[in-house]
Design a protein around this nucleic acid. Sequence first.
DNA 1: CATGCCCCTTTGAACGTTCAAACCCTCAGA
DNA 2: TCTGAGGGTTTGAACGTTCAAAGGGGCATG
Lengths: 397, 397
Amino acid sequence: MATKVTITDVARRAGVSRQTVSNVLNSPELVREETRDRVREAIETLGYRVSQAARQMRTGRSRLIATRIEPDQDGINGSVLDRFLHGLTASAARAGYRILLYAAGDERSEIDTFDDLVGSHEPDAFVLTSTYHGDGRPAWLRERRLPFVTFGRPWGNAGSAENPDDPDDPGHPWVDVDGAAGTAAATRHLLDVGHRRIGFLGWPPGSGVGDDRRSGWARTLAEAGVDPAGLDQATDDGVADGEKAARDLLRAERPITALVCASDSLALGALHAVRSLTASGQLTASGRLTAEGLLTVGGQAGGEEGLPVRVIGFDDTPVAKAVGLSSVSQPLAEAAAGCVGLLTRLFDPPSPGDHGGPGDHGGSSGSGESGASSDPGAGGPRTHVLLQPSLILRQSS
Amino acid sequence: MATKVTITDVARRAGVSRQTVSNVLNSPELVREETRDRVREAIETLGYRVSQAARQMRTGRSRLIATRIEPDQDGINGSVLDRFLHGLTASAARAGYRILLYAAGDERSEIDTFDDLVGSHEPDAFVLTSTYHGDGRPAWLRERRLPFVTFGRPWGNAGSAENPDDPDDPGHPWVDVDGAAGTAAATRHLLDVGHRRIGFLGWPPGSGVGDDRRSGWARTLAEAGVDPAGLDQATDDGVADGEKAARDLLRAERPITALVCASDSLALGALHAVRSLTASGQLTASGRLTAEGLLTVGGQAGGEEGLPVRVIGFDDTPVAKAVGLSSVSQPLAEAAAGCVGLLTRLFDPPSPGDHGGPGDHGGSSGSGESGASSDPGAGGPRTHVLLQPSLILRQSS
DNA sequence: CATGCCCCTTTGAACGTTCAAACCCTCAGA
DNA sequence: TCTGAGGGTTTGAACGTTCAAAGGGGCATG
């Protein structure tokens, strides 16, 4: 225990050379079975573990994946990235990697941290979360040929330098969840239970994620023959903001009778609005409280009188669970597995004939051609995973 | 950019030897000022960064601190450890360390992971969270003389082997937040606004954290001349559990008029109970809804008629913020800083005359004697930090 | 019997750093 | 002049691994 077990100790014990032990670990097919077993037994009994530091010195690979831990965020939605991070840690471990954390306030300081890490701990790859319009981080990493994946589509990128016409090919792999499909499912559900004037509570245009989520709602509503115009509101993310905006929609000339929201924060605000309008009697003209404490708004054209006001959030955060809010749930563990899968594919090119990446759960996996080039970063692997969210129904709808 | 800058490159450029560059970095006082400046300039212009892997090979130190990322937990309270983790990452970075994550389900698999990490990435220390009665992890680490801190007191430990009589000396440093002080403050506040029959919603006895929090409430109530007997309930942590237990307390023969809770989950459940009892009219004998939508319970002895029912949670989670729940807030960033401080003190013994650890914000810092022994783990450093929480008041009280 | 080949294994070197020891000056004291 | 001390710097070795190349035995082939 006192002294570290090295590869030489194992070699001596097994009666072979250092290199043979190394081969047993890294290229077992080179070693005769009998020798292999003897070495393995020596490894076992001595409790040998390969020293990452020494291995890294020689191979230049650290088996470390760096990612950022998000600051407290607005609060409620923060838990999404935490769950993603947990999934990432687990998936990485399964693939033999560990997650190295860093914190950074703004883009500048994050890039400084990249620089620092690349020079010191030398992570093999980065996972970027919370990508945004005009994100400078992918470019920085690309220029230096550092492998990375983004969790989030490269919004607003017109395509990679090599392939400027394909918006799905930003020149780096990415994983994302199809937000539009989520809001579409939510909207469809509300249509199914009889609603027509279904509103949307989202963020100001310009955020990729927000616009995506709004589009699923608008599209579905239009397909059902309802004009979405005037049925939505844009506001910052937050419970108070959501409450205010929802109040406006509920008291509009032609009020909405159900609401799809871009986040659980907004949805929680909407629930508050519904409750408080009920309590203060402002919506009781023809509304009443159902057994579940749900407000109903009547008198609208289209036969939806007497339906309870329903609210659906996005992200299925703990808060949603706690207050019984229906919500669109992202498959975060699978998203994380997808990120790790895409990265390891870069490092250890899959043997030809080995199809289908990890996390293939209804996601469209990227443009064939897994590029058996052993030179990672050459030309940029064009791969992505788009996962489907699921609708979790609770009391609120 | 293509090729890595090594210490030799810097040495050549500055016209000195490798070792001198190394000294500039690690023991600048050994190098003449003029030389030092020349070397520093070379480092700067070449953009040199010391290779952690190589340094680790020689020194045996990785500048890595390993900690566990918690699984999703019950939901709401998970965010506490996430915030702690963020603080830990930031504090560690300031001290020149990075956080290495691992995931583990049970104690067995966590210890297996220790074993794995110690052999491969060789973290310099571990930070343990969520300590519990009979926790086997500290013992395992102690046996192997691996440095670690716990966030959470070593509950149920009668003292270290060396010092079996001192319950505050478990043989390893720890950081914690004084939960009893938090519930005491909450209880005191409720007394101040006129309540007497103040209940407590907590967990079944046996959990160190839970018992601690209950004790602050009981002590404060007793000091005010109120017998706490019959005013509390114990239940599992969860919104539904909390609602049920709170309902019992509110409908008891001598109902409570205010409630201190061991977690925000329980408190949220309590809020639901209050609301639902109001809505269904079961408590309206002499209760009424105030402008803020708060229920009042009247008719009790002690002049507390007409007071709104108040609820206070614990941990100040995002949910509390969102629903306007008062809560006891833990100084998590400081707790994290405290952990890093205690660890670095182990590695780099402070120069004598350098007093007062990090995170000294009202915490009682441990038993003097900072042990300038350069042999970490010898005899076990007896140091701890106990931080004071703060009460955040919102609409609910 | 020499040659070549294949399979398995070993040998020497290198990765980039720091430790331990040696070295070279200069200066003070005997 | 010699000796010793001490500040500042250099030199050789070592950390534990893997790469590249060489070694050696058995066997088929010429």
